[in-house]
């Protein structure tokens, strides 16, 4: 299964970057989301995947015993998911704002190089 997830991570990264290279702002946003998912999956995969053993201590026990999923990447990803929501909403609003100002989806119309001497 690891190999399938590996391919998935690769595909998410590749498509994310591909979409970020488009001229359309909406596509840029889609690329951002795909890339975020890819990063989450990468962390998840590298933490090691375990089927059906959540990191929750049984009712009778005091410590986790036996095989269990790694809790550290999970808490990292949980944080990342919530933060990425904040990022996405901010990006969407920014995009909307820009669109309201310049009436276009084309990133080329935003182009003002720093130096124009």
């Amino acid at each position: 299964m690891e190999l399938l997830l590996l391919i998935l991570v690769g595909v998410l990264y590749a498509t994310g970057i591909f979409m970020m290279l488009r001229r359309s702002m909406v596509k840029l946003l889609i690329g951002l989301i795909l890339l975020g998912n890819g990063a989450n999956m990468l962390i998840f995969l590298l933490g090691g995947i375990t089927r059906g053993k959540p990191p929750i201590i049984g009712d009778a026990d005091k410590v986790l015993t036996g095989i269990y999923a790694d809790p550290v990447p999970q808490s990292l990803i949980l944080t990342a998911i919530v933060i990425s929501f904040g990022l996405q909403s901010f990006a969407i609003v920014l995009l909307k704002r820009v669109h309201a100002l310049i009436q276009t989806d084309d990133l080329n119309d935003l182009n003002t190089p720093d130096t124009s001497i």
């Binding site: 998840f44 059906g52 959540p54 990191p55 929750i56 999970q74 990803i77």
Partner: peptide, 8 residues
């Protein structure tokens, strides 16, 4: 869900 991360 399948890979033991219910919170996620």
């Amino acid at each position: 869900v399948i890979y033991s991360a219910p919170d996620l």
